[in-house]
């Protein structure tokens, strides 16, 4: 691991289909935007290094992989996340009223009890707004969430949203420190193969 990176944080994005979750993600990580962005295929999570208060932090931002379309996110999606972003479309009342259900699911499955939550009202560039800023703010306050209105299309608020979220996570004790993660299990990969090779602690020696 790069020693200059303080930690890796898992951030996830949820909310109704079509509110622009992937657009926000891709605007932040790749600085691109596509009006015709189809349903998200092939994006598991995106990685981005950012510097917050002099600390290099690696973000792994997880997308829903389209599983929210039929409201069938896997509970395991929520495991071990330090931050969660709930997105609604300011031009869609329906996407706002579904927030309660998404919030409940988050509360049910998130394993970090002090996970930092942020509400983003997306698509403020569009006309015919259906949800006022005050309403968003009220929802966020009620559930102790950070709140920001943004537009993935015009870049407004996107960078700031992620930065604020990460800042809050770093300020939350016990959420990201190495100690907290060592309580968890181990990951499988060729690299983390622990212990000794089979020839040493297995049964048979090499003669």
């Amino acid at each position: 691991m790069d020693p200059s990176v303080l930690t890796t944080l898992k951030i996830l994005i949820t909310g109704e289909s079509g509110v622009g979750k992937s657009s926000l993600l891709l605007r932040f990580t790749d600085d691109t935007f596509d009006n015709e962005q189809a349903a998200t295929i092939g994006v598991d999570f995106k990685v981005k290094l950012i510097n917050i208060d002099g600390n290099n932090v690696k973000l792994a931002i997880w997308d829903t992989a389209g599983q929210e379309r039929f409201r069938t996110l896997t509970p395991s999606y929520y495991r071990n996340a330090q931050g969660a972003i709930l997105v609604y479309d300011v031009c869609s009342r329906q996407s706002f009223s579904r927030l309660d259900a998404w919030f409940d699911e988050l509360e049910t499955y998130a394993t970090n009890t002090n996970i930092v939550k942020m509400l983003i009202g997306n698509k403020i560039d569009k006309e015919r707004r259906e949800v006022s800023r005050e309403e968003g703010l009220k929802f966020a306050k009620k559930h102790s969430m950070l709140f920001i209105e943004a537009s993935a299309k015009t870049k407004d608020g996107v960078q700031m949203a992620f930065e604020e979220l990460v800042q809050k996570i770093i300020q939350t004790p016990g959420l990201w420190e190495v100690d907290a993660s060592s309580q968890r299990g181990m990951s499988l990969s060729d690299r983390t193969e622990g212990g000794q090779p089979w020839s040493c602690s297995g049964y048979c020696s090499l003669v």
Partner: peptide, 24 residues
């Protein structure tokens, strides 16, 4: 961790990432 029921979900997530459509 969290039980054997995690594993089917892992494969479902992979399927979804590559375009699988999920309806419970």
């Amino acid at each position: 961790l969290y039980g054997s029921g995690e594993l089917p979900q892992c494969f479902c997530r992979c399927s979804a990432v590559f375009g699988g459509v999920y309806c419970l």
